[in-house]
Design a protein around this nucleic acid. Structure first.
Lengths: 226, 226
DNA sequence: ACTAACTTGCACACAACTGTGCAAGTTAGA
DNA sequence: TCTAACTTGCACAGTTGTGTGCAAGTTAGT
């Protein structure tokens, strides 16, 4: 009665929820151990391993979607981040990353090993570009260290940021403290003294108050704690 | 005729060499991929997988020895490192680590995942202690950042150092450049501006010339590239 | 209340890896 | 030269994981 012949019924709503639950569970599990089994993911999601294959054709497909989404969220958070002062630009990037710590940490798990490298690299390309832009500006402006190739410096800043995120989570820092630390250490690696870095942060209210503009509510993850 | 009854002949020399070759191969292989198979190690060593079990009872035993030795080498390189000025102390630690990049990178592979964590932690304890000492001194002296718990700062410096080592290898930097960068970025994360960090390095000839005292020749690895 | 959409459990086949036993080879060294 | 010390290849058992097929359930939505 709906479509031409033997119309298939529309997909069920709870199936979509389960799909999200799987992705959320995968994020949790793979954040701890990048090589965890699908059994572990299923357990975390409260489903059976078998049913994962109802949503994803293979482990790799699940991973690909997970990483792509993570990259998208991060890029979204990076969205309007930009500033004439490269120091503030860099700090803002740090702040934006902090709002997506979980995602960043999942991505970081796969950044090094295996063939997922490509996927992760693609997902993080916008972030990289933004960091590179700020870095270049900072070096040219004379604030950032000029004793290292730009490319190297940008990478060091990235890696330092990830290290800080990890440490902030491990040390269970406050929201505010974590944010501040990511920004401050980022600027440190860039070349500023810690007092200068803190001065920059202190002088700019947008860096001490609430995060960045923030997006209303993403339709993807965030809710449904499985 | 030698020992009391049915004297066993003494072990053959080439067996020892093979044992070393296996360890060296393991270092190479596991540096790339911490979860590589023993087949891969055997191939790298030019031996059969079966014969590995003639030297090590299990994968874990091989790993344990590899990590323990790595830790020992690093600790040895750290040996006499100490200085009244915490900034120089920290720089010297960086320089010492640079002489053992390879070892450090192997250890780093296992620092996070799995049950080897304990072994690695034990192996790196002396390094940690030295870093902590320098950090404490630097903070108390007013050079290093005082806006973070000491423990956190020490860890950040460690992680930053590892990141720099990785990047230095990836970017294929000169011996000298690599050493300088490890020291400089270490000081940066500690809180110094990049110019101050470079000034510290420039003002102290021991930091710009050849490494640290260096040990004559360790009887373990280093040679036999297998 | 019917039925397609989902989930589940179980049974497979397949692959990769560890660890062992053993017989047949090589080789270092007394 | 002779023999114990080593290496090797192969076969095997055991483990852990992936991906599929299928029959028997539940459940959402009409």
């Amino acid at each position: 009665m709906s479509t031409t012949l033997s119309a298939a019924r529309s997909p069920r709503k709870d199936a979509l929820e389960n799909r999200e639950a799987i992705l959320e569970a995968a994020a949790v599990v793979f954040r701890r151990d990048a090589e965890a089994s699908l059994d572990a993911v299923a357990a975390e999601a409260g489903l059976s391993r078998r049913s994962i294959y109802g949503h994803f054709a293979s482990r790799d497909e699940l991973l690909a979607e997970l990483l792509t989404r993570g990259g998208a969220r991060i890029s979204a958070a990076l969205g309007g981040v930009q500033h004439d002062d490269p120091r503030i630009h860099l700090a803002l990037i740090g702040a934006a990353l902090w709002t997506e710590v979980q995602q960043v940490r999942v991505l970081a798990q796969f950044a090094v090993h295996g063939p997922l490298e490509k996927t992760v690299a693609a997902a993080l390309a916008p972030v990289r570009a933004s960091v590179r832009l700020a870095t270049r500006g900072g070096v040219e402006g004379g604030w950032f260290r000029a004793d290292v190739p730009l490319e190297t410096l940008a990478r060091l800043i990235e890696e330092a940021a990830i290290a800080v995120l990890d440490e902030a989570v491990r040390a269970d820092l406050t929201e505010g403290e974590g944010r501040r630390l990511v920004m401050s250490v980022g600027l440190s690696v860039a070349g500023l003294s810690w007092r200068d870095a803190d001065a920059v942060l202190a002088a700019h209210p947008q860096l001490s108050g609430e995060p960045v503009p923030v997006i209303p509510t993403s339709p993807t993850a965030e809710s449904s704690p499985a």
